[in-house]
Write a protein that binds this DNA or RNA. Sequence first.
DNA 1: CTAGTACGGGAACGATCGCTCCACAACTCG
DNA 2: CGAGTTGTGGAGCGATCGTTCCCGTACTAG
Lengths: 194, 194
Amino acid sequence: MGRPRQFDEQDAVVRATELFWRRGYHATSVRDLGDELKLTPSSLYRTFTDKHTLFLRALDHYRATESAQAERLLAVDDRPVRDVLRDWMLWLVTCPPDGEPGRGCFVVNTATELGTADARISERTEAAFEVTRQALRSLLLKGRGQGELAADLDIDGAVELLFTTVLGLRVRERAGHGRAAMATAIDVAVRALG
Amino acid sequence: MGRPRQFDEQDAVVRATELFWRRGYHATSVRDLGDELKLTPSSLYRTFTDKHTLFLRALDHYRATESAQAERLLAVDDRPVRDVLRDWMLWLVTCPPDGEPGRGCFVVNTATELGTADARISERTEAAFEVTRQALRSLLLKGRGQGELAADLDIDGAVELLFTTVLGLRVRERAGHGRAAMATAIDVAVRALG
DNA sequence: CTAGTACGGGAACGATCGCTCCACAACTCG
DNA sequence: CGAGTTGTGGAGCGATCGTTCCCGTACTAG
């Protein structure tokens, strides 16, 4: 009972995610959030407890949507594994296609801004990283099983290199590096699978 | 003439660099800096103009010292290029060996925290990135010239992949990833040179 | 209708932000 | 010595930080 909400909580989380994503945790003030989400401080705190909790919600939302899209791209079953891998990496690097400067990856930005100091945050970034590693691993296993990749391919090693490369790519997108250079890196990485 | 300084300016820059490195730009307050550098606000502002300018000084100092150490490691001339490359990458990832959580790379942390919004900062991060790419390029060229690497090695491609890998490694160090996993990624990357 | 409950709007809390100002101290030069 | 110059210490500026509180509002239950 009581007075009904005048805003959509999920929509507010989406907007908060975009703001935190672009500016990072410390550079985003509660008033910035209030303006963007069209929420007064009282509604914001009543709904999301505090800034830190809202940030965790934003991280979770980002992981959920990002993972969903990634799974869709990786689930393509009728194309060569190498092509699926390349397209997925290219997509990771082109996520925000419209003008404006690259936002990089919210998880990577968060991990570098806050390091390992905050446990509740770093357990989320680590979980996100682990999802990526597992997605790479199962894709490579599929490729090896289908004979597209060498039978003696070092899966663990390949996963580590590809995962590390992905992190590097997302830093470069945030830094505004050209798509061509990153596409080159992706090509070489994929070709390194043998 | 006038009253002499009671502190060493260079030493203050070193301390400021460490603080900005660990905490990032926005999370480091002028009072934090004052405490760490043992400077009153008036001395700090008289000497370094403002927080932003001090941050640029810190970035420049980091680049200078970091580049100097990297050049020393890359200048080793009596060892196989692949070993030099591997050792350099391992060193990049182990820079702060003593306890405490990894600080990652100050340049990478800055690039992801501030993106491309601030021109004076991003021109410095880009310059630092370019130095790394050039160092990789000349090392690979040397290796190819000495016959250690294949004559038809795609230098541009290899540089892009290695550079991207290095950025990813520094993110991972900041995120507290284990040295073993990163060493694996490095091994595979070096082996991918053929 | 009334009582109870959750939300919206916004003033305002104490703390901290980046930064300035000024009286005083410590030096060089004539 | 005194005049000139620069650094030091620290109070304190206005602005903004994250957060709370209060009151009027919009709803449900009885």
